[in-house]
Design a protein around this nucleic acid. Structure first.
Lengths: 162, 162
DNA sequence: CAAAAACCAACTGCGTCACTCGGATTTAAT
DNA sequence: ATTAAATCCGAGTGACGCAGTTGGTTTTTG
């Protein structure tokens, strides 16, 4: 999962859409002025979002976009995956068993990137548009037991010893 | 924290260095052939790693690089922060209280990106080079999902972020 | 019909990435 | 002393994605 400002723009726009599309569809020019994003750039982003089935469009005057599903059923990870094109799979990333698993010494880091991708996806798919609107992000990640924090800041001995 | 293939190259090289620098320093040409990375590109990466204090250099024939600290005391997050230049801080990201906090509606997503950055940094700083070598990555993150949530309250995660 | 909106395609300036080239310095080995 | 191995250094290059622009077309409402 790629993390770029492009995905951030898309999420900003989708949050704006979820916030203002209560009664009638929201035009992209409204979002553009509110979020200070270029209209044509928004068009490109929403073309992808529409193809991904995340929004529905209404053409003609008074038209605009609505969420295809509810704001509680639209996850941030879906938005980012919709607008970012899939990773280039340059070296070892994400290629199948043939490309990388064969040579173990070269791809010691493979598991690391895979697990990092899992973490990111886990976090972003745990947050819905409604969560962002209500500023409740990923309660599972904010439970914050103090013990975990202490461990997180001083785990050098742990990691080294084990 | 930016995630690019550049940081991945740096981590690959540093893992290779940690693996082979037992007795004598490791030359970049060795790493280049083993990891299939261009030598001059490695030179640029190691210039940054050296400036960041992660490696030490030995010049002349038989020279090369060593880890400045032990492999158990070198964290993946440090490597990535060393080679990736700081984020461009384009729109709202990471700017202080003045830039973004003022307009709440525009930056509903601010907390989301901040927390995502915290998650990524927390994960990558919990993995050392030794962990990668021994394929023990962040046992806390591989436990049962309920207990594995690396939780961070605001202060500690800010402190860890940088 | 006119205006508002979604649609669409092509192009542009810019920055980063991964890499190359051509050196210079340091230092061990002969 | 010479050679060669290595780090250092700066400049430049092709490709690519990002963010935006231009200039339309279609659809639909009033």
């Amino acid at each position: 999962m790629k993390l770029s400002t492009k995905g951030r723009y898309a999420v900003m726009a989708m949050v704006d859409l979820a916030r203002h599309a209560q009664v009638k569809p929201v035009s992209l020019s409204d979002i553009a002025t509110r979020q200070e994003i270029s209209l044509s750039y928004l068009e490109q982003l929403f073309a992808r979002l529409r193809r991904a089935g995340l929004v529905k469009s209404v053409r003609g005057p008074g038209g605009g976009y609505r969420l295809a599903r509810g704001s509680a059923d639209t996850r941030v990870s879906e938005i980012i995956l919709a607008v970012d094109e899939p990773i280039s799979a340059t070296r070892c990333t994400e290629m199948g068993a043939t490309g990388c698993r064969a040579d173990r010494s070269k791809c010691l880091t493979h598991d690391l990137w895979e697990e990092l991708g899992n973490q990111i996806h886990l976090f972003l798919s745990s947050v819905t548009l409604l969560d962002v609107l209500e500023r409740k992000l990923a309660p599972r990640f904010l439970e914050a037991p103090a013990a975990a924090n202490a461990a997180a800041n001083t785990e050098s001995s742990m990691a080294a010893a084990s």
